[in-house]
């Protein structure tokens, strides 16, 4: 049994401690908003926040996470209210297929938490670990700027 905190809830999981957080979230906890894209921390589809900082959950053994606070895409909004990043994503209507967008939103959330008014170069640097195969980068950038002004 491993105790982890996900979206403010303390949970016990029975997975092998070596299991990457990604698969614990998806298969054991049924939190499927976090996506599998590459398994080797190259694409960012699996991005979650660990104590507020963007990390790749595909490469993070669940056994190393005791006492840490994990936030997934499901933990950003309340029933009624989207986070300002999610809201900006809606207003710019960013997604095409949507598969990479959870990871993009988590990376953007992490960026804006530590830098509330990032420059173009800072946005590009923070988002360079997230691949979008549909090519929504121009709209992602617009949404991050919009969120930074919200």
């Amino acid at each position: 049994m491993i105790s982890i905190s996900v979206n403010g809830r303390n949970l016990q999981v029975e997975d092998d401690p070596q299991t990457p957080l990604l698969w614990v979230l998806r298969d054991s906890l049924d939190l499927t908003g976090t996506k599998y894209g590459c398994g080797i921390a190259q694409c960012g589809a699996c991005t979650v926040l660990l104590d507020g900082v963007a990390v790749r959950s595909c490469s993070l053994p669940v056994g190393s996470l005791a006492g840490k606070n994990i936030t997934t895409i499901e933990g950003l909004a309340t029933e009624e209210t989207l986070s300002k990043v999610q809201q900006a994503w809606v207003e710019e209507d960013v997604p095409q297929c949507g598969y990479c967008q959870s990871g993009q939103i988590m990376s953007a959330t992490s960026l804006l938490t530590r830098n509330s008014n990032p420059s173009d170069a800072e946005i590009e640097s923070a988002m360079s670990g997230n691949i979008c195969r549909c090519g929504t980068y121009p709209r992602i950038k617009k949404a991050i700027k919009r969120a930074s002004k919200a």
Binding site: E74, P95, G98
Partner: peptide, 19 residues
Amino acid sequence: NRLTPKIVRGEKYFALDLK
């Protein structure tokens, strides 16, 4: 896009998310 509000919340959407 009619699907954007679901996508930004990470709601179930793809076959891969089915259990």
